[in-house]
């Protein structure tokens, strides 16, 4: 049943020196914030730039700032965020704005590389396949952090990222924690050295914004605490 109501939607236009532009959008049942942005782009202004892909909370493309809070827009019902008939939608913070709701995520992903967020193989196809018990402590720790969809909501919510451009950020560190717990990985020393350097896991102030905002209910701050512990142990043992 369609509702006859409409809301005022303020959407960021332009680059860093842009401004909010207000549109009137009719409300619909089960309408998401992404639906609202899509409606504006298709019905009112085809020049509006924004990103999305899967629309079901898997791809991590559609995160935006909704009423000042970073959110995944495809899984956020507009009815939950409308305040007094209005909603404000902007690009994610802590990244340069390319246009409208699209921000430049190059640095965000470059930091995944700097955090050694890629699996480092140590065996060939001739070696037997490693058996990992689902109940192993390392596997359980990795499981708790593995469902990240790279949406950058935590990165946009993080105070330390805002204050320190060298900080790798919660997403990259959370990813690194899953690999630190991968017993098959052959690049642990280099990874821990990268994570223990300036701008690495020890820059985290444990503000918990990443955990508070993560749409997948992950706890990057717990992963980072694990990295702090693991790299500290390695440093004390003289391995770093």
């Amino acid at each position: 049943m369609a509702m006859a109501m409409a809301i005022e939607v303020s959407i960021w236009r332009g680059r860093a020196n842009g401004r909010y532009q207000t549109f009137t959008v009719p409300l619909d049942q089960s309408q998401t914030v992404l639906d609202v942005v899509t409606w504006v782009q298709r019905k009112l202004d085809p020049t509006l730039a924004y990103r999305f892909a899967c629309r079901v909370g898997m791809c991590g493309s559609c995160a935006m700032t909704v009423n000042g809070r970073p959110r995944w827009t495809c899984r956020t019902h507009i009815s939950k965020v409308v305040e007094a008939g209005r909603v404000e939608i902007g690009p994610l913070a802590n990244m340069p704005i390319i246009k409208d709701l699209v921000c430049d995520m190059a640095e965000f992903f470059a930091k995944w590389q700097r955090a050694k967020g890629a699996f480092a193989p140590g065996k060939s196809r001739h070696d037997p396949i490693e058996r990992i018990s689902p109940a192993a402590a390392e596997r359980v720790a990795a499981d708790a952090a593995i469902e990240c969809i790279n949406c950058a909501v935590c990165y946009a919510a993080c105070d330390t990222v805002r204050w320190n451009e060298n900080y790798l950020g919660p997403a990259a560190l959370n990813r690194a924690w899953t690999l630190v717990n991968d017993v098959r990985d052959a690049g642990q020393r280099e990874r821990l050295a990268a994570l223990a350097a300036d701008g690495g896991c020890h820059a985290c102030h444990s503000h918990h914004s990443c955990q508070e905002h993560c749409p997948k209910a992950l706890s990057p701050v717990r992963s980072i605490a694990g990295l702090k512990r693991r790299s500290l142990e390695a440093y004390v043992r003289g391995e770093l």
């Binding site: 020890h202 820059a203 500290l232 440093y235 770093l240």
Partner: peptide, 8 residues
């Protein structure tokens, strides 16, 4: 902040 400063 790196691991050495953190430890200290």
């Amino acid at each position: 902040m790196n691991v050495r400063l953190y430890l200290l």
